[in-house]
Design a protein around this nucleic acid. Structure first.
Length: 268
DNA sequence: ACACTGACCTGCGAGC
DNA sequence: TGCTCGCAGGTCAGTG
């Protein structure tokens, strides 16, 4: 369940670990992970180097010598940097042999993740029709106002809409709404200008704090091989039993098919 | 045109 | 103990 902060953590960790590493061979063990032809994918990547590391929404972006590799981890995708002789399991679907003797392994129990080769100069502004990055100036109260006025959905659904803003997932959507004291089921038609400003500021504040928390684990990663996020660090409502602010019992309701946690006392 | 639902997948834990 | 069932959730195709 990697959301923006975890993807950012993975990007930074990999940049630290495999910057400028070359790919000597690629093995695809599960074709469906690859968008397009798997053999062509392997051919295109062989001989390329990991030159630059970036993120757009929940997409990992690896700029190679003259192509772009985009990876979406979806729910359970993870990268492992291991020695080729280390034990393999049935969930390791794509293997990148590196010229430093290590192997970068893509692990995904639920097989939802996807990888794609794109032109180096792919326009990221309209990439997968993603909305603005949460830290971009384009994500401001006026933008929230204009977007939400066209929609008739609960606030939770609005925050999860990647066309609205890129990178928020189920956990942070709940946390942002708790910080704004807004119920996830509240219609996005029925909020104030002040609420719009809160949504912008709390989104930025919470995601930045989460990235900073993810950053602390990067250090522990240097001694470990798995690259996963932490992100259950500072939840106030999501999967909690009682509200951290008032002690009320947290309620769970399904909104837009997702479980949504909120405090009935603090959130209106 | 918009909003909603189910499919994609596997592993895990609750309940019988 | 061993089975079934529901849940976990990001995204998109399909439906109303």
């Amino acid at each position: 369940m990697p959301e923006l902060p975890e993807v950012e953590t993975v990007v930074r960790t990999l940049e630290h670990q495999i910057h400028d590493c070359g790919i000597s061979d690629v093995t695809v063990r599960l074709d469906k992970i690859i968008e397009g032809d798997a053999e062509e994918f392997c051919r295109n990547l062989t001989g390329q180097h990991f030159r630059r590391f970036a993120r757009r929404g929940k997409y990992l972006l690896f700029y190679m010598d003259d192509i772009l590799l985009s990876v979406h981890l979806r729910m359970e995708g993870k990268f492992w940097l291991q020695k080729p002789e280390e034990e393999m399991n049935r969930h390791m679907h794509v293997l990148f042999d590196l010229d430093n003797g290590m192997q970068l392994r893509y692990h995904d129990t639920r097989r939802f993740g996807r990888m794609q080769i794109l032109p180096y100069d792919t326009d990221l502004t309209h990439f997968h029709d993603l909305g603005p990055e949460p830290f971009d100036d384009a994500f401001n109260a006026a933008y929230v106002h204009a977007f939400r006025k066209k929609k008739h959905v609960p606030l939770k659904t609005l925050l999860l809409d990647q066309h609205f803003v890129a990178g928020i997932g189920n956990i942070y959507a709940d946390e942002i709404l708790a910080a704004c004291r807004l119920r996830p089921g509240r219609s996005c038609q029925r909020i104030t200008r002040e609420d719009e400003e809160h949504i912008v500021s709390e989104t930025g504040r919470i995601l930045k704090a989460a990235i900073a928390a993810g950053g602390t684990t990067i250090r522990s990663y240097t001694s470990s091989l798995g690259i996963t996020g932490l992100f259950q660090t500072e939840c106030t409502v999501h999967t909690m039993k009682t509200c951290q602010r008032c002690g009320s019992e947290i309620r769970m309701k399904r909104i837009g098919g997702r479980s949504s946690y909120y405090c009935p006392h603090c959130q209106k």
